[in-house]
């Protein structure tokens, strides 16, 4: 279950910014921080890498989002990767 810290660079213009932030807020996997200037820090929790990628692509395509930077990623071992699965 990866947990990532992202910085979302928003497009300038208060209307588009507000629009984008609204849409971001609607995604349950995102936890939003405080918008500062054009940047919005968020935490992202996903099931797996594929989902992370999906959310990343969604973010990049979102109107009002100029760029997404990945600041940190934390990988938790998933069940299938446990070293000694019980028989």
């Amino acid at each position: 279950m990866p947990t990532s810290g992202l910085i979302i660079t928003l497009q300038p213009g208060s209307a588009t910014q507000a629009d984008a932030v609204g849409r971001l807020r609607a995604r349950p996997e995102l936890t939003l921080g405080e918008v500062s200037d054009r940047w919005l820090p968020v935490a992202l929790e996903t099931r797996d890498d594929a989902e992370s990628r999906e959310v990343y692509d969604w973010l990049m395509a979102l109107p009002g989002v100029a760029f997404v930077d990945v600041v940190s990623v934390n990988f938790e071992p998933t069940l299938s990767l446990q070293l000694h699965p019980s028989p």
Binding site: G5, I7, S36, P41, V42, D69, N74
Partner: peptide
Amino acid sequence: LRASALAAASAVVA
């Protein structure tokens, strides 16, 4: 984890 991820991102923004 969520809090630390958000904190890391916020620190960079700051």
